[in-house]
Design a protein around this nucleic acid. Structure first.
Length: 634
RNA sequence: GCCGGUGUAGCUCAGUUGGCUAGAGCAGCUGAUUUGUAAUCAGCAGGCCACGGGUUCGAAUCCUGUCACCGGCUCCA
C-alpha cells in the first residue's frame, strides 16, 4: 500500500504495516524518536495499522503534541506505580497540562510530599522495564466489571455515549479508560519528576469529595527537564513576596489581618509614581476624578443588587446609630449617586469618572496570596455613562487605553477573555445580548484575539477580562471592562435627550490595571524587582569613597534632586565594594561613585545595575541620560 | 472554605531517640579602619521556640485546639 507523508512524498509499505513501520521506512533515527503518529489528522499509537492512501505524520518529543503524549504517558506510569505501592487506591483522572501532568487519587490513607520519592523510584522501575502500553477496546459491561471497586472510573464510564466502545490502555496491572495515544513502551519516558501534592475536588466541583492530586512533569531529555527545574527555581527568586521583603516594599501583618497589606515607604513610593502616571493619563484622556466614602448605608447596596447577588463577598454590616452601613466592595453605586445628583443632558455624555477606589471583599482564607489576592485593595476604577450610540466607540477607546497602559509597564503578553452571563445575575436577556455583542464588536474592531469564558460575567453584565501571568506562570486577571444596562435601571439613571424626554444611559465599568495591589505584585515579578528607572524608588545612589568626598557627594545629590531624580547618598563608613554590593542587592538602577578623581575633574563615575561599570562622565551627561530614560519610561 | 505541609532572633536557617543556660550567618548597636566597582575587622546586644490547652520528673521536640503562612482545589481584581 501507499501512504503519504507531510512533505507530500509517498512511501510504499507492506499491506499489514503500522505507523511504526512507516517511521522505520523513513529512517532508523526517526523510528527511535517516534512516540506516536498522526494518521489522517487523528493522533494514534505507533501500533496503529495503516490503510492504503493514509496520510501519515510521525510525532516525536520535539513537538508540542509529542511532549503532551510523553506527559500523558508519564501520568499513567504514575498511576501504575501508585497502584503497586498503595493497592486500595481509587483512581480519578490524569491528564497532561501546560507544564507537566497530574493524576488524582483517593488514597486509602493520606500521603504527603515525603512519599513522592518512593513513588518516583517505583516509576523508574516501570520505565526501566520498558513495559508496553497496550490498547484495547472493550464493551461497556466488560469494562464495568473490570473497574469493579473504582467508583470514579465507573462514573466516567457511565457517562460515555452508549454507541461508543471506549478504548483502554493497560500498563502492567493498571488499566485506564483512555483515548490515547500513548508512547509504545515506558522506556520512552527519558526524564520526569514528581513535584508536589495537592487537594483537588473530583471533577473540580467543591460539592464533590476531595482527592489527592500528584503533580509532575516530564521531558524528552534530562537536559530539558533540568532546564525546566532551573526555570522554576528562577521563578521562586522572582516571587513578589520574597522580593517585597528583600526590597522593603510591603508586608502583611498577622495582627493587622490576613490579606491586608501594609505599604512601606519604598513600596508606597512606587505606588505613588504609578498613581500619578495613572491620574495624568486619565485626565489627558477625557476622564474626571471623583471620590466617594468607604462605607455606605445598606440601602444603597439593596438598590444596586449587591445585597442580593454579591453578599457572600461583602463584610457584615456595622451599626451606626441604629442604621446599617457596609464597607464598599465596589465603587459603582457611589459614582452613580454623583451622576444622579442633578439632571444630566445628552450633551454631557459620555461622562467618564475615574477613581483609585479602595474596596474590601471577603475572600476565603485559602485563596489569599501575597499582593495578588487580598481582602482590601484599590481598584483603578472608572465608570462611563454613555448613550447607546456611543457605546461601541467608548469600549474601543477603553481597550486602546488598556493596551497603552500595559505596554507602558512592559507587559506585551496577556490573555483576553469575553465572559458571558452567569447563573446568579440580574437583567433581561435582551440587554445581556446587546451588551455582549457590543464587547465582541469592540474586540473585533481593535483586532484583539480572545476566548469566550462562559458564565463568568459579573451579576450585572458581561465583561472583557485580560490576564497577565506571574513568575510561576499563574494567570491573574487584571484588566476588566464591563458593559452594564442593569445598574442604570435599578438606580433609574437618566439623561435628557435631544427630544426633551428621559433616556437611559449605559454604563461601562472598567479597571485597567485591575487593582494596584495585584498589578504591583505582577509588576515586581515581571521586572524581578529591578524596576525601570521611572518606577525605581531610588533611582541613583551616590557612593563617596571616603569621608572627605561627602561635600562633593552632596553637591552631586543636590544637583540630581533639583532635576527631579530620586538620589540618595550612602553615608556609611564602609568600603566602596561594600556600598556597591548593597546597592546591587537593592537593585538601584544607577550607582554613582565619587572620589578624588571625580571631585577634581567635576565629573562622576557611573555604574548601572543593568550594564555594570560605565566609567567616568560629566554629571550633565549622566543627568541628560537619566532624564531621557525617565521621560521614555524605558 | 477544603486537602496536604510549615511556623525557632528583624532576615535565612541549625537544633539528634523528649534532657545542660536554644545555636549560626546576615542585618542592628559600639569601637577601630578612610577604603576605587558585589561583603574590612573586633566586640556587644538580640528569642513567650506562632498562640492556647494537655501528656511527662522534664516539651522547641509528643498530643490537641486556634491563628497565620506555603502548594493546590474551589472562588476572584
Amino acid at each position: 500500500m501507499k501512504v503519504s507523508l507531510p512533505d507530500k512524498s509517498i512511501i510504499e509499505l507492506s499491506a499489514d504495516a503500522t505507523a511504526m513501520d512507516a517511521a522505520a521506512r523513513i529512517g532508523s533515527r526517526l523510528a527511535k524518536a517516534a512516540l506516536a503518529a498522526t494518521v489522517n489528522g487523528q493522533q494514534v499509537d505507533l501500533s496503529h495499522p495503516l490503510a492504503d492512501g493514509d496520510s501519515v505524520a510521525i510525532i516525536t518529543g520535539d513537538s508540542a503534541e509529542g511532549l503532551e503524549i510523553i506527559r500523558h504517558s508519564a501520568s499513567h506510569i504514575l498511576a501504575a506505580a501508585v497502584q503497586e505501592l498503595y493497592p486500595h487506591t481509587q483512581f480519578g483522572i490524569g491528564p497532561a497540562i501546560a507544564d507537566g501532568f497530574y493524576y488524582d487519587f483517593k488514597f486509602p490513607s493520606p500521603i504527603s510530599e515525603n512519599d513522592l520519592s518512593a513513588i518516583e523510584a517505583k516509576m523508574k522501575e516501570i520505565i526501566k522495564a520498558k513495559a508496553p502500553f497496550e490498547r484495547s477496546r472493550l464493551c461497556r459491561e466488560v469494562a464495568a466489571e473490570m473497574f469493579g471497586a473504582q467508583p470514579f472510573k465507573q462514573e466516567l464510564l457511565a457517562e460515555l455515549p452508549t454507541e461508543e466502545t471506549a478504548s483502554y490502555y493497560t500498563l502492567g496491572h493498571f488499566t485506564d479508560l483512555c483515548r490515547g495515544p500513548h508512547v509504545p513502551d515506558t522506556g520512552r519516558i527519558k526524564a520526569f519528576k514528581l513535584l508536589s501534592t495537592a487537594g483537588a475536588y473530583w471533577r473540580g466541583d467543591e460539592k464533590n469529595q476531595m482527592l489527592t492530586r500528584i503533580y509532575g512533569t516530564a521531558f524528552p531529555s534530562q537536559k530539558l527537564l533540568d532546564e525546566h527545574l532551573e526555570r522554576l527555581r528562577e521563578a521562586e527568586r522572582r516571587d513578589h513576596r520574597v522580593l517585597g521583603k528583600q526590597l522593603d516594599l510591603f508586608h502583611i501583618d498577622e495582627e493587622v489581618g490576613a490579606g491586608l497589606p501594609l505599604w512601606h515607604p519604598k513600596g508606597a513610593l512606587i505606588r505613588k509614581i504609578i498613581e500619578d502616571f495613572w491620574r495624568d493619563a486619565h485626565l489627558a484622556s477625557g476622564y474626571e476624578m471623583v471620590v466617594i466614602p468607604h462605607i455606605a448605608s445598606v440601602d444603597l447596596w439593596k438598590t444596586s443588587g449587591h445585597w442580593d447577588f454579591y453578599r457572600e463577598n461583602m463584610y457584615s454590616p456595622m451599626d451606626i446609630e441604629g442604621q446599617e452601613y457596609i464597607v464598599k466592595p465596589m465603587n459603582c453605586p457611589g459614582h452613580i449617586k454623583i451622576y444622579k445628583n442633578r439632571t444630566r443632558s445628552y450633551r454631557e455624555l459620555p461622562i467618564r469618572w475615574a477613581e483609585l477606589g479602595t474596596v474590601y471583599r471577603y475572600e476565603r482564607s485559602g485563596v489569599l496570596h501575597g499582593l495578588l489576592r487580598v481582602r482590601g485593595f484599590t481598584q483603578d476604577d472608572a465608570h462611563l455613562f454613555v448613550r447607546p450610540d456611543q457605546l461601541e466607540d467608548e469600549i474601543v477607546s477603553v481597550i486602546r487605553f488598556v493596551l497603552f497602559m500595559l505596554k507602558t509597564f512592559g507587559f506585551e503578553e496577556y490573555e483576553v477573555y469575553l465572559s458571558t452571563r452567569p447563573e446568579k445575575s440580574v437583567g433581561s436577556d435582551e440587554h445581556w445580548d446587546q451588551a455582549t455583542a457590543a464587547l465582541k464588536a469592540a474586540l473585533e474592531d481593535v483586532g484583539l484575539g480572545y476566548e469566550i469564558d462562559p458564565g463568568e460575567g459579573v451579576f450585572y453584565g458581561p465583561k472583557i477580562d485580560m490576564k497577565i501571568r506571574d513568575a510561576l506562570g499563574r494567570a491573574w486577571q487584571c484588566t476588566t471592562i464591563q458593559v452594564d444596562f442593569n445598574l442604570p435601571e435599578r438606580f433609574d439613571v437618566t439623561y435628557v435627550g435631544e427630544d426633551n424626554t428621559d433616556h437611559r444611559p449605559i454604563m461601562i465599568h472598567r479597571a485597567l490595571l485591575g487593582s494596584l495591589e495585584r498589578f504591583i505584585g505582577c509588576l515586581i515579578e515581571h521586572y524581578a524587582g529591578a524596576f525601570p528607572l521611572w518606577l525605581a524608588p531610588v533611582q541613583a545612589i551616590i557612593l563617596p569613597i571616603a569621608d572627605r568626598h561627602m561635600d562633593y557627594a552632596e553637591q552631586v545629590a543636590a544637583r540630581m534632586t533639583a532635576e527631579g531624580v530620586r538620589a540618595e547618598i550612602d553615608y556609611r563608613k564602609e568600603s566602596v565594594g561594600r556600598k556597591i554590593r548593597d546597592a546591587e542587592m537593592e537593585k538601584v538602577p544607577f550607582m554613582i561613585v565619587v572620589g578624588d578623581k571625580e571631585a577634581d575633574a567635576g565629573n562622576v563615575s557611573v555604574r548601572s545595575y543593568a550594564e555594570g561599570d560605565l566609567g567616568a562622565m560629566p554629571l550633565d551627561e549622566l543627568l541628560a541620560n537619566l532624564m531621557r530614560q525617565i521621560e521614555e519610561k524605558s
